[in-house]
Design a binder for these strands. Structure first.
Length: 644
RNA sequence: GCCGGAUUAGCACAGUGGUAGUGCAGCGGUUUUGUAAACCGAAGGUCGCGGGUUCAAAUCCUGCAUCCGGCACCA
C-alpha cells in the first residue's frame, strides 16, 4: 500500500490507494485548502489523481511558481467556455499556457475584436465565480470522435484522430462545458482567480501550417494575484518606452518610409552609432586574424545557379535585368559565393588555412511583407560576415576561437548572457546525408570542446549546413538571432574551392560561415532597446552637450566644445536663448551622457560643471581635466589598455 | 504571404456626413536666466494614394500602399 514521501523527507503510509486530496487533508486543513495540484514523482498531476504505489509527492499551492502554468492553462479553458457561451457556433481547437499567459485558437467566421474583450472577460469572471470543479474522464477513441462530430467540433475530432492508439483520451469538464485535454488542472474554475487579462487577437494557422485554415487566436495573460498582474502590465508599459522604433524617432537616429520598405534611412546620429560599432568590429576582427574584403552587390545569375541559391533561395532574391546584355543579375542575399570567388583566385596552400575572410557585406533579401519589423527585420542590411576556409580538423579550434570572440564582443556591448541554438538539417537542403552527418558531428564536437551549451532546434539549419544561432532578446521579450556559426561542406564543393595540401594533392576546404552581430541593423535595434537609448559614453552618438547659462559665456562655451572635439569627442554646443532648466531637460531627454554647464563663474575660472545623465549632482573640474577625463571614459572597451 | 487593426500638422493625439482642432516641437519677439519644460505672437494640413456613393466625405463603400500585433517565413 502506498507510502508517500513528502518534501521534508517524512513519510505517510496508507492502507489503500488514495487521492492527493486525501493526502493533503491528512496533513492538515491549511494544506487541504491551499493545494491546487501536486507533483507526483516530479510530474505535475491533478490533485484527484489516485496514488496506488509508493511515491514522492509535492503539493503545489498558489505560492509556488508551478501554479502559474496551471492557472494559465485553466484560464485558457475558462476563456474557451466564455467564448462558446457568448458566440455560439464557434469551434474550439487548442489553448495552451505560454510564457506570461495563454492563448486559445478558435474557428469562427466573424472576426473577434478587442472590443469583444470586455464582454468575454466579464463572462470569464462569471465562470470563475461559479467555481465549477474540473472533472477528468476517460473516453474511448471512437466515442470521442463521434462526440465532437455530433457537436460540430471538427478540429477537436481531428485532434482525437491524430492521437496515438496507445494514448489515453481524457476529457475535462467544468460544469456543463467539456473539452478534450491532457490536463492537469486545478480543482475548479474558482482557482483561476481574477488576475487575468485578455491582451490581443491575431490570426494563427491551424497546426501552424500556412496551407491550413486560419484560426483566430486570443492571447491573454494570467498571474497568481493582482499584484503580479499589475507588475507585468507595468513592465510591458516600460518595455514599450524602450522600443527601438520609438527611441529611433525620438533621438533622431533613423527613419523608414514607404518609398523604401525594409530599408533604413540612417540619420547622422544613428549613423554615428553604426560607425562606432563598425570601427569597433573592424578592430576586433583584425586582432582576431581576419582579413577584410569587399565584394560586388550585383552578381550574375550563373554564380547563384552554381552556388545553389538560385534553386533554394530565388524567391527571396532581388533581380536586376539588363535588357541590352540579355543577362540576369541579382543583388547578393549573402556574401559567401563571392568570398569563394576570392578564395579561388590563384592556387591556395594548406599553409594559408585557416583563412579568415571578413566583409561588412551589404545584402538584400526580399523578406515577406509581414515579417518586416523596424530595423530588426529589414530587406537591406549589412552583416559583419566572415568565412573561414579551413580543414575538417581545424573546425573545432576555429569554433572555440569564434565563441570566445563573440562572447567578448557581446560583453563589450553589455550583453552578459545569450542563448545558443543548434539547428540541424532542414528538409530543403543540399548535400548528401553522409556530408550532413559529418558536418553536424563536427559542430557538436566543437561545441563540447568550447563548452557551449545549446538547445536543439531541429530542422532549422541552413540549406548547406548545420548552424549555431546566438540569440538575443529585445525589450518586449522577442528573440532575435544575431550571431551565427555555420559549418558548410557543400558550397566549397559546388563552387569548386580547393587548396594544395601537404601531400601535394588538391583538397576541398571546409567553410565556416560566421557573424557576431549578425546584421548591424538588427544588432543596433537590440542595442537601442538594451540601453533604452542611454548608451554608454563610447557608443553615444552625442557624447557631451556644452550648454550655457548666460550669453556672456558663449565664447567660452565654444572654446570648451573645441577642446572636447579636439580630444575626439562628439559634442553639441547649446547657446540657445533658453533657460538652463530647459536645456538640461532637452539634452537629458536626448540621452546625452554628459552635460557640461558653463556660466559666468566657469568662464571666469576656466572650469566646467559636469552633470551625468539622470544624476542631479554636478562636479566642477578645470577644462583640461574635464576633457582628459571624459575622453578617457569614452575609450572603446577594446582600447582601454592602450591608455591605462 | 495570411488574419485583424491603424494611417489627420515634424511628433503625440481629438474630430461618426455640413467652415479641420489641441498639446509639444519648429519660426518671430520679449526675457540673460545656475541644473529635467520662462512668457507672448504669427504660421503650419492633397485628413496615406486612387475610385465610388451623396447636394455635401477626414467621416460611408471599394481597390491599393505602408505601418502595427500575431501566424507563416527567417538560407
Amino acid at each position: 500500500m502506498p507510502a508517500i514521501t513528502l518534501p521534508d523527507g517524512s513519510q505517510r503510509s496508507f492502507d489503500a490507494p488514495v487521492t492527493g486530496t486525501t493526502v493533503a487533508a491528512s496533513i492538515g486543513p491549511g494544506l487541504a485548502k491551499a493545494a491546487l495540484a501536486m507533483k507526483l514523482d516530479g510530474r505535475l498531476v491533478d490533485l484527484s489523481t489516485e496514488i496506488a504505489e509508493d511515491a514522492r509527492v509535492v503539493f503545489v499551492t498558489r505560492r509556488d511558481e508551478d501554479a502559474l502554468e496551471l492557472i494559465r492553462h485553466d484560464t485558457a479553458h475558462v476563456l474557451a467556455e466564455a467564448v462558446q457561451e457568448l458566440f455560439p457556433g464557434t469551434q474550439v481547437t487548442i489553448g495552451p499556457s505560454i510564457e506570461n499567459g495563454f492563448y486559445y485558437d478558435f474557428a469562427r467566421n466573424e472576426p473577434f475584436t478587442t472590443a469583444d474583450f470586455t464582454a468575454i472577460e466579464a463572462k470569464m469572471r462569471e465562470i470563475v465565480a461559479r467555481g465549477a470543479p474540473f472533472v477528468r474522464s476517460v473516453r474511448d477513441r471512437n466515442d470521442a470522435i463521434a462526440f465532437f462530430e455530433a457537436k460540430g467540433e471538427g478540429y477537436k475530432a481531428e485532434l482525437v484522430r491524430d492521437l496515438g492508439e496507445d494514448q489515453t483520451i481524457t476529457f475535462y469538464s467544468q460544469g456543463d462545458w467539456i473539452d478534450l485535454c491532457r490536463g492537469p488542472h486545478m480543482r475548479s474554475t474558482g482557482d483561476v482567480g481574477t488576475a487575468f487579462k485578455l491582451m490581443k487577437v491575431a490570426g494563427a494557422y491551424w497546426r501552424g501550417d500556412h496551407r491550413n485554415a486560419m484560426l483566430q487566436r486570443i492571447y491573454g495573460t494570467a498571474w497568481r494575484d493582482q499584484k503580479e498582474l499589475d507588475a507585468y502590465l507595468k513592465m510591458l508599459e516600460e518595455a514599450e518606452k524602450r522600443d527601438h522604433r520609438r527611441i529611433g524617432r525620438e533621438m533622431g537616429l533613423f527613419h523608414l518610409q514607404e518609398e523604401a520598405p525594409g530599408s533604413v534611412f540612417w540619420h547622422p546620429k544613428g549613423w554615428k552609432i553604426y560607425r562606432t560599432a563598425e570601427a569597433y568590429m573592424r578592430r576586433r576582427l583584425e586582432a582576431g586574424g581576419y582579413e577584410e574584403v569587399k565584394t560586388p552587390q550585383l552578381v550574375d545569375r550563373a554564380l547563384w545557379e552554381a552556388s545553389g541559391h538560385w534553386e533554394k533561395y530565388r524567391e527571396n532574391m532581388f533581380q536586376a535585368m539588363v535588357a541590352e546584355e540579355d543577362k540576369t543579375l541579382a543583388l547578393k542575399p549573402m556574401n559567401c559565393p563571392c568570398h569563394v570567388l576570392i578564395f579561388r583566385q590563384g592556387l591556395r596552400s594548406y599553409r594559408e588555412l585557416p583563412l579568415r575572410m571578413a566583409e561588412f557585406g551589404a545584402c538584400h533579401r526580399y523578406e515577406p511583407s509581414g515579417a518586416l519589423h523596424g530595423i530588426m527585420r529589414v530587406r537591406a542590411f549589412t552583416q559583419d560576415d566572415a568565412h573561414i576556409f579551413c580543414t575538417e580538423a581545424q573546425i573545432a579550434d576555429e569554433t572555440v576561437r569564434f565563441v570566445e570572440l563573440l562572447s567578448s564582443v557581446y560583453r563589450d556591448f553589455g550583453f552578459e548572457s545569450f542563448r545558443v541554438k543548434f539547428s540541424d538539417r532542414p528538409e530543403k537542403r543540399a548535400g548528401s546525408d553522409e556530408t550532413w552527418d559529418r558536418a553536424e558531428g563536427a559542430l557538436k564536437e566543437a561545441c563540447a570542446i568550447a563548452g557551449v551549451e545549446y538547445e536543439l532546434n531541429p530542422g532549422e539549419g541552413a540549406f548547406y549546413g548545420p548552424k549555431l544561432e546566438f540569440v538575443l532578446r529585445d525589450a518586449i521579450g522577442r528573440d532575435w538571432q544575431c550571431g551565427t556559426l555555420q559549418v558548410d561542406f557543400v558550397l566549397p564543393e559546388r563552387l569548386d574551392a580547393e587548396y594544395v595540401g601537404e601531400d601535394g594533392a588538391r583538397h576541398r576546404p571546409v567553410m565556416l560561415h560566421r557573424a557576431i552581430l549578425g546584421s548591424f541593423e538588427r544588432f543596433l535595434g537590440i542595442l537601442i532597446e538594451q540601453y533604452a537609448g542611454r548608451f554608454p559614453l563610447w557608443l553615444a552618438p552625442v557624447q557631451v552637450a556644452v550648454v550655457t547659462i548666460v550669453s556672456d559665456a558663449d565664447d567660452y562655451a565654444h572654446e570648451v566644445s573645441a577642446a572636447l572635439k579636439a580630444a575626439g569627442l562628439t559634442v553639441v554646443t547649446d547657446t540657445a536663448n533658453s533657460k538652463i532648466n530647459a536645456k538640461i531637460r532637452e539634452h537629458s531627454v536626448q540621452h546625452v551622457p554628459v552635460i557640461a554647464v558653463v556660466g559666468r563663474k566657469e568662464a571666469e575660472t576656466r572650469t566646467v560643471a559636469l552633470r551625468r545623465l539622470g544624476v542631479e549632482a554636478q562636479e566642477t573640474l578645470s577644462l583640461d581635466e574635464a576633457v582628459a577625463r571624459i575622453a578617457a571614459e569614452a575609450t572603446p572597451p577594446d582600447m582601454t589598455n592602450e591608455f591605462a
